[in-house]
């Protein structure tokens, strides 16, 4: 199938970017990233600079791929990452606009590749549990009800790709932070640091320059792991409780 691409090209964080148009012959069975591999081979053969884009596992679990396709992070399909989006989701002769995640907190490194270090710093501020080192503890020594484990796991499926920030009109990171806070606050291991954690993570989120949530729901609608909006409600509860306790 013949595809027309309008791809965002930007040399580095400080340079001005612009769209460039390309034509690619792709198979409907290719993933979106494989179509980009074809484009890059073409560009290299022509002696041009290939398009920089992030990718790693290509099976939807690493959270590296990050393309805004026709205005939607990870493209038009629900619950898939860009690497698992296939060209059969498009039609012959389509013109596809491909842009990087756009948010002040995610500066462009090059072309479609952005720096998501802000997420790492939010995690470092409190998105962990402290444990004593030593012998591995028996997995069944702490009993957790199945439904609690399931709900915590649902939140834990967040791969930290940043599609929520990219989809939100305010570039808010609350679905990401909500998922992490929910996962850890539900489990016994997360209790000792529960209140300090949520305040530290929200402070770091604000300091990184993400916007405020206005409950439009775009984040949850575009999340490739379908993290529900209820994690943000939970984040609010956890934060207000901690604040009322003077944290």
């Amino acid at each position: 199938m013949n595809i027309n691409l309008k791809v965002w090209r930007q040399r580095n964080q400080n340079s001005e970017g612009r769209f460039e148009e390309y034509k690619v012959q792709a198979s409907p069975d290719m993933s979106f990233l494989e179509m980009f591999d074809v484009l890059n081979e073409q560009l290299i053969e022509d002696g041009k600079d290939p398009v920089a884009f992030d990718h790693d596992c290509r099976e939807g679990i690493c959270g590296m791929c990050s393309m805004v396709i026709n205005g939607r992070p990870h493209g038009p399909k629900q619950g898939v990452t860009t690497c698992q989006l296939h060209m059969r989701s498009f039609s012959e002769g389509d013109t596809i606009v491909v842009e990087p995640w756009r948010a002040n907190a995610f500066p462009v490194i090059k072309d479609l590749s952005v720096n998501r270090g802000a997420f790492d710093r939010i995690i470092a501020s409190g998105g962990y549990v402290s444990v004593n080192t030593g012998n591995a503890v028996d997995a069944n020594s702490i009993l957790i009800p199945k439904e609690v484990a399931d709900e915590a796991f649902e939140a834990a499926t967040c791969i930290g790709c940043g599609a929520c920030v990219s989809a939100c009109k305010n570039a808010s990171a609350m679905l990401f932070v909500g998922a992490k806070v929910t996962q850890l606050s539900m489990l016994p291991q997360g209790q000792p640091e529960r209140q300090a954690r949520v305040v530290a993570m929200v402070n770091q989120m604000d300091a990184e320059g993400f916007g405020a949530c206005t409950n439009t729901g775009a984040c949850a609608a575009e999340c490739p792991k379908q993290i529900p909006l209820s994690v943000i409600a939970n984040l609010n509860r956890e934060y207000y409780k901690a604040k009322l306790n003077g944290k």
């Binding site: 805004v68 842009e99 002040n104 993400f210 206005t214």
Partner: peptide, 28 residues
């Protein structure tokens, strides 16, 4: 305050427009 502050959080705007695919117009 929130309306103007939130608008500043994405200095470079998108060209692609998702329309109402992921949210309601009045929510935005």
């Amino acid at each position: 305050y929130l309306t103007f502050d939130n608008r500043k959080r994405r200095a470079a705007k998108y060209t692609g427009n998702p329309g109402n695919a992921n949210s309601k117009w009045y929510s935005r």
